[in-house]
């Protein structure tokens, strides 16, 4: 184990850490914004309403993240019409391609988690809301969604960790994220052990931070359910 390689390249890893945090954080925000309406549409009984969101969730949960990234990065670049259109400046950059792929991917998983949580809303809560005279919109806003978010939280915490780990595929399309830094160090010094152990440690620390954060969040949101 050659620690000088790791120490010399720490700035590179920190840059990579920053890219990973940016990508994952922005993708999670966009994914969540996408997931809430998708989940609501999915709970509908009308096939015209749930059809399209169902197809979206089905595709993005049914294919590997790497395939989705390749389709967006390499696939989009293949078509002349896209290369000459106004959206090309976005698809030209590996960063945006990765962000789009990650957002759509985590959006689909989160929608599915939320849909499950909404469906499991105890009937009593809805009945009580109705008895209080709440209209449907108010019911969703005040009762069903907050209750669903609370139930979805542990599963969502897992999704966040999966997204963090999945984000490592960004290094395949030239982005220098945590793994990308490791790949450069490996290639430069022919030292795969040092290079990837360091990458792994960075992911490990991030994962622990996320787990800790979600634990606090869960305590706060389900305080009323805790035994005293």
């Amino acid at each position: 184990m050659d620690f000088t390689i790791i120490l010399d390249n720490l700035p590179l890893y920190v840059q990579g850490l920053w890219i990973t945090i940016q990508l994952v954080f922005l993708a999670l925000c966009a994914g969540l914004v996408l997931a809430v309406p998708t989940a609501l549409l999915l709970t509908s009984k009308n096939p015209l309403v749930w059809g399209l969101p169902y197809a979206y969730v089905y595709f993005f949960r049914g294919t590997p993240l790497l395939v989705q990234l390749f389709l967006i990065y390499h696939g989009m670049g293949q078509f002349e019409t896209i290369r000459e259109s106004f959206i090309w400046p976005i698809f030209r950059e590996a960063y945006w391609c990765a962000l789009i792929a990650f957002s759509l991917n985590t959006g689909a998983y989160t929608a599915e988690i939320l849909r499950g949580a909404i469906n499991q809303t105890p009937w009593g809560e809805i009945e009580a809301a109705k008895a209080c005279g709440m209209r449907k919109v108010t019911r969703y806003r005040r009762i069903i969604l907050p209750s669903a978010f609370r139930r979805a939280l542990p599963a969502y915490g897992n999704e966040v960790i999966f997204m963090l780990h999945g984000s490592a595929v960004a290094s395949i399309v030239t982005l220098v994220d945590i793994l990308g830094a490791g790949r450069i160090v490996n290639a430069r010094y022919f030292a795969p052990w040092e290079a990837y152990v360091t990458s792994g440690l960075f992911y490990l620390c991030l994962t622990f931070a996320i787990v800790y954060f979600f634990k606090l969040w869960e305590r706060r949101w389900s305080a009323h359910l805790r035994t005293r």
């Binding site: 670049g77 030239t174 790949r183």
Partner: peptide
């Protein structure tokens, strides 16, 4: 500098204009 794992990938991105 964009670094690719293979030369073929570099060509692909050259064609795409990246």
């Amino acid at each position: 500098i964009r670094r690719y794992a293979t030369q073929d990938e570099a060509y692909m991105d050259a064609v795409a204009g990246r």
